[in-house]
Amino acid sequence: MNIFRLAGDMTHLASVLVLLLKIHTIKSCAGVSLKTQELYALVFACRYLDIFTNFVSLYNTVMKLIFLGSSFSIVWYMRYHKVVRRSYDKDQDTFRHYFLVLPCLVLALLINEKFTFKEVMWTFSLYLEAVAILPQLVLLQRTRNIDNLTGQYVFLLGAYRGLYILNWIYRYFTEPHFVHWITWISGLVQTLLYADFFYYYYQSWKNNQKLHLPA
């Protein structure tokens, strides 16, 4: 494992911890999109179908369990916790799941490396992860006042994507036959979706102002 991959995983982990911290200690999920969180839970459930059959390393297995556990517990908190669920911006978070899920499923059935159930589900999870942030970005755009933790959460997720691209570049040059077009293209699309947010995040950080997205 190279330094970019490790740093990418750690920022991904940090993003989840920041979100759990916000929900667990402040008992608020204001500005957080339940749609995006449900899509992430679906992404991990479909991607880690091999968790007990394909052992890569203890690190991989533990991280998979953490991502599965945290994504489902965030969804649980936002849906059912008696305090947290009251802070959910339900009326603003109106993105429809199936607009994203159905095209990704069709695409995974058409474009995959191997037409088996596990492989199609894995490909579906890559396509869906690429666009799962959209409901969150739409919600940020709508509510416009973004608290620090929500801003940091999205920033860390974007950083994780960027580091994964560096990891692929590194692996391409250091490992023979490391070519994964589906992973790369969907990963690149996902990272580009953060570009706009990153621009405003950087501006607010540079000017030492509160993050504020234009209408």
């Binding site: 991959r5 995983d9 991904h12 991607r47 091999d50 394909n54 890569v56 991989n60 991280m63 998979k64 991502f67 490396e113 191997k114 492989e119 894995w122 994964y164 990891n167 490992e175 023979p176 036959h177 994964h180 992973t183």
Partner: peptide
């Protein structure tokens, strides 16, 4: 080296 159908990333 892992074969192509074994995914080693998260």
């Amino acid at each position: 080296q892992e074969s192509d159908d074994e995914h080693d990333e998260l």
